[in-house]
């Protein structure tokens, strides 16, 4: 295997990692601040992708589509937070799992009703198509590079938001002591709504960005959701830094395992078997890593004891 191929795959892993980060950042904030297990987070990923492809079809403008993928999920997130999610904060995890599982059914079926059962497509705009030559003779997809750059900016933005703004201080305070922040006279339910909307918007953005590479279809959010849960558990629940590191770790591990395991198994068995065994072991690798992390650090890498 050439070094170029290796670096290209490494970049793909990082790109996948940043996409996972967009999903897990919201998930980990929502869990950290409100103590809510939100299985419906994958639905916002799907809603983002569908709103983007709807707006792109209407206006032909990719950048408006991306804007829509932030706004629609955030609005729907606010509506759902107001009507249902708000009542779940004081409940135990079990009720949260069931209610948000039910929300998945509702969202998926609603989207299927509105857009039909067939997958949609979201085209990458012309200026982002094709490849770019990186230093070291590496040819890489422009669009994937843009995803990496957007992910970096979001990570920086979130860091700034959490550490340098009043809202961020409130979020941190909310994670540490929910009772105290209420006593201090901060409007906690407004804070919860804002955090939920930010999470939904980030998931929607991730959905739209990925929707342009894959197809936009019902149920696209759940596999990503499950991996995002793995990410936040590895990183430590509530920690944005943990989510970033966990996401990059899982992104690179998953991509590399998919590349190397089939090659490795081809040495000892026939090609078709090696391919299927390699790819199924690669799918297992993220969960294996999570189990290992939890065995040695039961609250994740950056989680509170």
């Amino acid at each position: 295997m050439s070094l170029q191929l290796f670096i290209e795959q490494l970049l793909n892993g990082i790109q996948f990692g940043f996409m996972l980060f967009l999903m897990s950042a919201g998930l980990t904030l929502i869990f950290g601040v409100m103590g809510l297990i939100n299985l419906a987070h994958g639905s916002f990923f799907m809603i983002g992708a569908f709103s983007a492809s709807f707006v792109a079809g209407l206006t032909g403008n990719f950048f408006l589509a991306i804007l829509a993928s932030l706004i629609f999920p955030a609005l729907i997130g606010i509506m759902v937070e107001f009507s249902i999610i708000r009542k779940l904060y004081e409940r135990d995890h079990l009720d949260q799992v069931l209610a948000t599982f039910a929300l998945i059914l509702i969202f998926s079926e609603a989207i299927r009703y509105i857009f039909g059962a067939f997958p949609l497509f979201l085209d990458i705009p012309n200026i982002l198509q094709g490849n770019i030559l990186l230093p070291g003779e590496i040819v890489y997809s422009k669009y994937r590079l843009i995803i990496i750059i957007i992910g970096l900016f979001i990570a920086l933005g979130l860091y700034f938001l959490i550490n340098r703004t009043l809202l961020g201080i409130q979020i941190k305070a909310g994670q540490n002591d929910r009772q105290m922040i209420r006593v201090l006279g901060i409007n906690i339910s407004r804070l919860y709504t804002i955090v939920f909307a930010i999470g939904a918007a980030l998931a929607g953005l991730a959905g739209a960005l990925i929707g342009a590479i894959q197809s936009v279809e019902v149920g696209m959010g759940e596999p990503v959701l499950i991996l995002a849960f793995v990410v936040i558990v590895i990183g430590g629940i509530g920690s944005i830094k943990g989510a970033l590191i966990g996401a990059l770790l899982i992104g690179v591990l998953d991509t590399m395992a998919r590349l190397f395991l089939p090659i490795f198994f081809e040495l000892i068995m026939e090609t078709s078997q090696a391919l299927s065994l390699g790819s199924s072991l690669a799918s297992m690798s993220a969960y294996l890593l999570m189990a290992l992390v939890l065995i040695f650090r039961p609250t994740g890498l950056f989680g509170k004891k």
């Binding site: 297990i37 499950i226 793995v230 558990v233 078709s272 078997q273 969960y287 999570m290 039961p298 994740g300």
Partner: peptide
């Protein structure tokens, strides 16, 4: 050994491993 949400997630992780194993077991 874990509890709360970590217990939820680690049981999920093991189930997912068996799931992917069965997918790959042609």
């Amino acid at each position: 050994r874990t509890s709360g949400v970590y217990f939820i997630m680690i049981t999920l992780a093991f189930a997912q491993m068996t799931y992917y194993f069965s997918v790959g077991w042609t």
